[in-house]
């Protein structure tokens, strides 16, 4: 393909030749100009092809180098050892807090019974304290939900690592497919605010993202 610049040059030279010849063309002169243009165009194509080849070679080297580096990181170990271990640790945390919370709750319930036997002011004081203990035990629900979110994130990482292993074929087994389960497509029930039910399941929010009880009260009041 003749570039736009070469095309302009060609036209300019032909116009100049036309002026020189008083409107006529010398076929040899035209042939010479065209030949020059073709040679120049071929030269440019050859140069750009060489440049492209060099660039492709460099890209190929970068890819090979990245593959080697990722292989050294042993993504298979991340998938087979680190991620399951992290997941197990988190499960153990949930289990341990559940057991501890159960024990605290049992103790508080016993204090409640003793308070009932004591009667009078002491019963009320103990009841107030046990109520505080009960509500504080709600931490287990919140931490459990937060940990579930982290486990979900780990599963997501595991899927990505699996895809990376498969894409780069660091194990040498070509064409291996990811064994990680695909994200299940839950039935989406639309709500009036443009969110489906799955999108609304976010779990506990960080303080800067969550709205407070008083904000919720105000929001509900707006409907009334």
């Amino acid at each position: 393909m003749v570039s736009r610049k070469a095309h302009k040059n060609l036209l300019a030279r032909l116009e100049s030749l036309q002026e020189e010849r008083g409107g006529g063309f010398n076929i040899d002169a035209v042939a010479h100009i065209v030949e020059e243009a073709i040679t120049s165009a071929l030269k440019r194509t050859s140069e750009s092809e060489t440049g492209l080849r060099t660039e492709l070679e460099q890209v190929s080297q970068i890819i090979n180098s990245a593959k080697a580096e990722i292989a050294n990181l042993k993504p298979e170990d991340v998938k087979s050892d680190y991620l399951p271990a992290a997941s197990d640790e988190l499960d153990a945390i949930v289990e341990a807090t559940e057991v501890a919370t159960d024990e605290i709750m049992s103790a508080a319930e016993k204090i409640d019974i003793i308070g009932g036997e004591l009667g009078g002011d002491n019963e009320d004081k103990l009841a107030d304290l046990t109520v505080q203990i009960y509500t504080a035990c709600g931490f287990q629900d919140i931490t459990g939900q937060r940990i579930t979110k982290v486990v979900g994130a780990l599963k997501n990482i595991e899927t990505r690592v699996d895809e990376l292993i498969s894409a780069l074929d660091t194990s040498g087994k070509k064409g291996r497919k990811s064994k990680a389960p695909k994200k299940t497509q839950k039935k989406k029930a639309a709500t009036g605010v443009g969110h489906n039910d799955d999108e609304l399941l976010q779990g506990p929010q960080n303080k800067d993202q969550a709205i407070k009880q008083e904000d919720i009260d105000a929001l509900l009041a707006d409907f009334d």
Partner: peptide, 21 residues
Amino acid sequence: AESKSENVIAAKEAGVSNYIV
């Protein structure tokens, strides 16, 4: 623990009587 305004709005639209976070 779902404490985003879109949750509160969705619940209210579904007919919730009150909402505690």
